[in-house]
Amino acid sequence: MNEGVQVLLNYMLSENVMLVSFFGVTLLLTETEGARAAMKGGLVFATAVLVSTLVGTLLATALPGGEVIEMLAFLVVSLLAVSAIRAGGRLTGERLGLPAPLYALPLLVGSQALLTQASLDFPLTFAAAVGVGLGVYIVYVLSTSMFEQIRLTETRSVVKGVPALIIALGILGFALMGFQLL
């Protein structure tokens, strides 16, 4: 298999930033729009993650000064990405008493840190960033669909909602980790 395709599949499945690295979990648990709306909303988040991951990783590689400058670059890129998402009408208002954009920061910063740590060359970084973006989209759409289904299901209130979603995401995470054999 082509190395670029392998890297793309790895970051999309077995090293998925949402379920395997956990960086996107806060976003999954707070952005619970319906499945149909998630098809469009997921595209916005996935594009933002793809672009910010690519830009942040390249910036971190190009800038001298070590981890402090890297972290600063990640933060600036992430805040710009959040502003772009907000301009598109997403991440507005509050979730659980906090501004919604804060929930996207672990995903955006974490993705950049993960790829910088991998120290890939440019073509592979690009493939990895595309893999991260696709992984975010797939998991976001699946997660919102599952949550919608869980909400409609008749079951005990103790299990209904977030606990059922979390266990379902765990099982989905195991399935994704299984692709490490690629």
């Binding site: 956990f22 103790v158 979390i166 995401l169 765990g170 995470g173 195991f174």
Partner: peptide, 19 residues
């Protein structure tokens, strides 16, 4: 020991807390 194993642990913890 895997990161996703934590999902199951915390899902179960949340159910126990609700009970």
């Amino acid at each position: 020991g895997t990161p996703t194993g934590a999902f199951l642990f915390l899902g179960a913890t949340m159910i126990v807390a609700r009970l």
